[in-house]
Nucleic acid binder design. Structure first.
Lengths: 368, 368
DNA sequence: TCGCAAAATGTATGCGCTTACAATCACTCA
DNA sequence: TGAGTGATTGTAAGCGCATACATTTTGCGA
């Protein structure tokens, strides 16, 4: 790899000025076909690729959008092993493991982010942007967000992944879109979903399938904003149905499968409910396990619903009724908002609210 | 948002030269504490964020690594609907769908890429880089790869996602690492896995659990390089065990669940096998369905194995024995290779071969 | 108090590209 | 054939930052 070719090299080889080279690449029609060919020849011969940095500097825009979200990555603490230095020859080409069901299963939140990312990338591409991503790892010394902010035309951040004051500062420089957080009194553009409304509707569906007397709710941890919204939606729906909160058995879990299992056991001890609305899928699946172990049939004896739409919910038996975030669309909408603001920097801050998908499956349907 | 602040603005406000501002940010120790504080004050007050483009240009390195892979995204053809312009007020906050198990399930290849990406991001972060991603969409007019190549210090591409001549040209400018493709006679750095060896080992495990006489292999489509390698591994193992290829029932599927189902039905018609080694998980799962429908028990009557390690394989009943790509590590190794080459541009091209994980689960174990 | 080395800061240049503006060219029509 | 025009190309000035080198300041010992 010799020194990288620059416009100057191309220009010299083609016998034109650098301006012409630049034109060939930016506005081909402004240059005479013969000249253009000559320049393109040189470009190919030299393997010339324009420097993004130089372009960005000259154009005052980079054509890059940034996506930043918090990390939930277990492998973060993975050994810093050096795959490159290790002697290849002696390593076996495979390992054999007695594997359980969840060997290597990624964190659910990562799956969520994967899809958001995919949507963002798709839309970015459609709009002619490239995507840069960063994951927060709570390392204050390494200003990853700021680093990214300096390289992009616009930034998408997952709610709460960046401290308010930092975000405010970045927003001073480039447009910022906040993803899936509550629309607070800030001046950013937002993309959110209607957690509470969807939970209300789901609850209504459950009420239509179960005796209102035996309703149970399995909440998430107290400090979870999502969990809180889901509770609110549930509470609203039962209130509307004339059911008092006190008439509902409310348990609290921590979003894990195990906590769902425990909660269901407790419910069974108190006398099995007619329906269990869980604040997420994991807990719902854990509860279903517990019910099964106790000989209680789902959905025949008890209706169960989850929230999130993880893949295991679709593969469980019975398949789990749940609510899914429109993750792809979250990503796409965020990019659209950025693109819009780059065109109209002074438009009013805007919040796009995307519909959630309530996926009605077996677990919530009373048999005919 | 007023005009973005630059070094000049910060310098002026702090009463120093731009060089000092730059030093405060790059080598804080080279500046007297009093001055440093003054500068940092200005930085904060002005919301200054250094321009990545300018930095990149001046330093002659961007601190960004690129990851490029082919797209398998169904939503690619999604309507270009404009979420931003649509009137929010009238859209319902949710939709209700009678959902089947695979509503909205992402393409398996995407899941693979998601994890590679995650590994790459993790390692990039550890090495002080930021990650830029691009998805190929077969649009020759839009040179996304080249676009990315111009903005990064190094590029990782999935095998076959970029035409050879294009890749060769890019490699002229920046280091390139090819992911998970066969190590051909090129001069790039590679990260690969030992597909064939792992399949051989898996086959050996199966042979230990089943009558060699009743062995069946369910191959992938003819044009799949992965499929071919897996067949080779299988063939090697049975040869080694003294079994002739002709003594094995070989069927061909197209990697879909349905094709696995069909193949198993055909096998049943011929007289059920003692073991079925499938070239991927989907087909294996389809086959298991077919066996179950026919009253043939897995693993009691027939042992089944898959390949890929998709999540459904862990959730199926029985859980499916399979082989999983070390996806996270693929991403990490790729970044490590790039980092290495950026330090030693003239080192010999290198191929890192990562071990596959054979996940032994229920479907392949003969009951005691 | 002065001299001097080391520390701190400033000056000036260039990174590779885009683009406004100036200069030149190729044609047209008279 | 010459003037006038639009098309084509060249010239030159930044874009915002890092940094080599020059200059000034500081700290210290005598």
């Amino acid at each position: 790899m010799t020194r990288k070719a620059t416009v100057y090299d191309v220009a010299e080889r083609a016998g034109v000025s650098i301006a012409t080279v630049s034109r060939v690449l930016r506005q081909p029609d402004a240059v005479r076909p013969v000249t253009r060919e000559r320049v393109l020849d040189s470009v190919a011969a030299l393997g010339y690729v324009p420097s993004g940095s130089a372009r960005g500097l000259a154009e005052r825009r980079t054509g890059v959008l940034g996506l930043y979200f918090p990390g939930f990555d277990a492998s973060e603490d993975a050994p810093v092993f050096d795959m490159v230095a290790d002697d290849q020859a002696e390593a076996p080409p495979f390992t054999v493991e007695q594997a359980s069901a969840d060997t290597g299963a990624p964190h659910p939140t990562m799956l969520f982010l994967d899809e958001v990312l995919r949507g963002a990338e798709l839309e970015a591409w459609k709009q002619g942007f490239v995507l840069m991503i960063g994951v927060g790892r709570g390392d204050p010394a390494r200003e990853t967000v700021r680093d990214i902010a300096g390289r992009v035309d616009g930034l998408m951040v997952l709610a709460q992944s960046v401290p308010d004051e930092v975000l405010a500062r970045l927003a001073q420089r480039i447009p910022v879109v906040v993803l899936s957080g509550p629309a607070r009194g800030d001046s950013y553009d937002h993309v959110t979903v209607s957690n509470a409304e969807a939970m209300s509707e789901l609850t209504r569906l459950v009420l239509a399938q179960a005796d209102p007397g035996g309703l149970a709710f399995l909440a998430g941890p107290e400090d979870s904003p999502d969990g809180a919204q889901r509770w609110e939606g549930f509470a609203a729906a039962i209130a509307e149905a004339g059911i008092a909160t006190d008439d509902v058995m409310v348990l609290r879990g921590d979003f894990t499968r195990a906590s769902g299992h425990r909660a269901a056991e407790e419910l069974i001890a108190r006398g099995a409910p007619a329906a269990l609305v869980a604040a997420n899928d994991q807990m719902a699946l854990g509860a279903i396990d517990a019910f099964r172990s106790a000989g209680i049939r789902v959905p025949d004896d008890v209706r169960v619903t989850g929230f999130d739409g993880i893949e295991a919910a679709a593969l469980s038996r019975p398949t789990l009724t749940t609510v899914r975030q429109p993750m792809i669309d979250l990503g796409r909408a965020a990019v659209q908002l950025l693109a819009r603001r780059l065109e109209q920097p002074d438009a009013e801050p805007m919040t796009v609210r995307l519909p959630l998908q309530i996926l009605v499956r077996e677990s919530s349907q009373r048999p005919e």
